[in-house]
Design a protein around this nucleic acid. Structure first.
Lengths: 202, 202
DNA sequence: GCATTATTTTAATCATCATTAAAATTATTG
DNA sequence: CAATAATTTTAATGATGATTAAAATAATGC
């Protein structure tokens, strides 16, 4: 039996959860690069210098691997949001911060983050959890917009559609960004401005 | 032998290519709704009231089905672009037209259009063709931006990043829009403005 | 160093669909 | 209607890769 084993959810166990996290990043990289159906567990394992069967020490099956990738992706977004809300001044400035932080995390050390295609093929409970996280995040973003409209920094707009537009842009990044640091820098430099350019109240 | 058979590429044959087109839409719908790995050929066939094996009359294999979905998606984008360029006045107005037309096609009769996850798992030739189409389209959009900057309707910006941002937003639509006409109307109403709001020269 | 636990590998097995071949049906054309 | 071609189905087959079990190795605590 394992004392601090695969079952435990807490991140207290450094050894195990560190390796697992490395695995999730490797998987995210594979999924983004080769597509979901295009990456076998062997691909992920190869990237880690392991054998495919070894992955099952960290994860029950491929579905769960995907699920965990998505949870991680959502976590990254949530952290960025939290930090932005903590530090932000008015609504618009907080939106800008959020965008900056989220992108910073995605293209930086925390990345890569898996693009969330294939949510629908998760098993129901996993799917629901991911969708819940996703909805919560969207709601938080819309709340930011609302706050900005209230404090006069953001021009009135359709919250849902504006949120979808900006989030879509963000979500698509992993589809074309694959780790080039030069590009990372440029995204970080340009995207927050581009995505928030249309928001400001006149 | 078939006189106007699966092999022929031309769209002259109405009977065959009409059905095939219906099939591509069904497939797109499935892929968007259930994910790629989550849709079996049977799912697509069910939607058409056919048996899975029947699909092979229209397509060599599942890979080719995906490929054709993507080509169709690209075609839709290209048509929108062409029409916008034909009708547009200045750069900014042409961008707005393009956005409107493309969205109109995506959420309207031409849709649904498959989201292009899984390009990487296409076989090399197909992948290259799709990527070429994709690159051409991006280039056309950037050209529009450039034109706008030249004629003074669009403020100077990083073409590549601005293009990526706007295209990403567009590409993500099939991930959350699944045919509700009310939503379709709202997207059409809001997105062109939202996506072009940041572009205008001051 | 021994005992125990953690991690990884080797070597099968299994399941799911995609795929195929042949037959059956349906449509078309002269 | 007869003949030919187009379309679909039935019924197998097959391939890929996920998954598992047992054994092997590596790490850790005493």
């Amino acid at each position: 039996m394992q004392s601090r084993s695969p079952g435990t959810e807490n991140a207290i166990d450094t050894r195990f959860s560190l390796k697992r996290n490395r695995m999730l990043k490797a998987a995210a990289r594979c999924f983004n690069l080769k597509g979901y159906s295009g990456t076998s567990l062997k691909d992920v394992a190869d990237l880690l210098g392991l054998t495919d069967a070894a992955l099952y020490y960290y994860v029950r099956n491929k579905q769960e691997l995907v699920y965990l990738c998505y949870v991680r992706a959502a976590d990254v977004g949530r952290e960025a949001m939290q930090r932005a809300v903590d530090e932000g001044e008015d609504g618009l400035e907080t939106v800008r911060r959020y965008l900056r932080y989220h992108i910073e995390y995605m293209v930086g050390d925390q990345g890569p983050v898996a693009i969330m295609s294939e949510i629908p093929s998760l098993k129901p409970e996993h799917r629901e959890k991911v969708l819940a996280l996703s909805r919560t995040h969207s709601a938080a973003f819309e709340a930011l917009l609302e706050r900005g409209i209230a404090d006069g920094s953001i021009a009135p707009c359709d919250l849902r559609m504006t949120g979808n537009a900006i989030m879509g842009s963000l979500n698509w990044i992993p589809k074309w960004f694959h780790g080039d640091p030069t590009v990372a820098e440029k995204i970080l430099e340009e995207f927050p401005r581009i995505l928030s350019a249309g928001l400001a109240a006149r």
